[in-house]
């Protein structure tokens, strides 16, 4: 047991948790805001892959890291626009369109990558974001190395979660988004334009997914692999439900999942030889299914989620 406690008490674990959580936070927020407006975006996995690639590519070609993130956001937004045209304007099935976007965006990402970067034995690298040294805080015993040795995008993600929580709960535009996701006809009857609101939410959300993907290549690692998103997008879709469509809970959910993940990595080394490591790899996913089952039973799904809106039709 003391081995388990030692893991939890190590600053390295908590630093890893925040690092693992960052892309999940960003992409979950993106999926969440889109679903709050009534559009499920299963393009998330592919959009993250594309964001990871295009952000990295920009930096590899000489752009600075922040420009890389911006490029990733624009790349994500581009696929968000595609998904919006298909699901909002044309009213197609959001599932099918989303899966199509995922397949297209991941393949397209790899295609562009192969066009631009020659095949090499060792993949080319960039210099990623470095941990921010926050005067005072970073020097604290335990808390410093545990929580204040992250790169800038991590703090950005956490700040964004708080900002979006405020936006959705407290501002007129947040209310308009929620109303559109609950009953677009009611939104229109109040003089809002549900189509425009859905477009905005999907495009903004997809931009966040792109940034979430780019965190992997610009901060967590320093090179791009086509398979590097590794199902994180699907985890985010589940996290949205786990979070009951609330940004503040999405933040917690992402951190919780990251905790399972970081914990199992360390558990592997402690218990190696006793239990096959594949079991540990399963733990975060199993636990998230359990957590989902417990939490989602009480969740209030946006009533118009996945329902296309057509003017004048009831």
């Amino acid at each position: 047991m003391s081995a388990l406690f030692d893991i939890l008490a190590s600053a390295g674990l908590w630093a890893a948790v925040l690092r693992i959580a960052t892309p999940l936070i960003l992409a979950t927020l993106g999926a969440l805001i889109s679903e709050r407006a009534g559009v499920l975006n299963l393009g998330i996995e592919g959009i993250m892959t594309f964001g990871a690639m295009v952000g990295w590519l920009a930096v590899y070609n000489g752009a600075d890291l922040w420009t890389g993130l911006l490029v990733a956001a624009l790349g994500g937004a581009m696929f968000g626009l595609l998904h919006s045209v298909l699901t909002v304007t044309l009213g197609l099935s959001q599932h099918v369109s989303g899966l199509g976007v995922t397949l297209f965006a991941s393949s397209f990402a790899y295609y562009v990558f192969r066009l631009m970067v020659p095949v090499a034995g060792t993949p080319p690298t960039i210099t990623p974001f470095q941990p921010l040294d926050i005067p005072g805080l970073s020097d604290l015993p335990f808390f410093g190395p545990a929580f204040f040795t992250q790169t800038a995008p991590t703090y950005l993600a956490i700040g964004l979660a708080i900002a979006l929580a405020y936006l959705i709960a407290r501002t007129p535009v947040g209310l308009a988004i929620r109303m559109t996701g609950e009953n677009p006809h009611a939104a229109e009857a109040q003089g809002l334009n549900p189509m425009a609101i859905r477009y905005g939410a999907v495009i903004f959300g997809s931009a966040l997914m792109g940034v979430g993907g780019a965190f992997l290549t610009l901060s967590a690692f320093n090179s791009f692999f086509p398979t590097m998103v590794q199902g994180r997008g699907w985890i985010c879709i589940a996290l949205v439900v786990f979070a009951s469509w609330k940004p503040e809970r999405a933040l917690l959910g992402a951190i919780l999942f990251a905790l399972f993940d970081a914990f199992q990595l360390r558990l592997q080394t402690v218990l190696s030889g006793v239990v096959p490591y594949q079991i540990f790899l399963m733990i975060p996913y199993l636990l998230s299914i359990v957590a989902l089952a417990v939490m989602a039973r009480r969740a209030r799904v946006p009533q118009a989620l996945m329902q296309p809106y057509r003017r004048g039709e009831r």
Binding site: R170, T171, P172, A176, R178, M179, N183, A186, Q190, R300
Partner: peptide, 29 residues
Amino acid sequence: VHQHFSLAPNLTVLENVMTGTESLWSIGS
């Protein structure tokens, strides 16, 4: 007042009433 109400069951009464009544770009409500 529509026959099929234009209301959102998951929102509060006040939220239903206030939707769209303020400028979308204001920072607070």
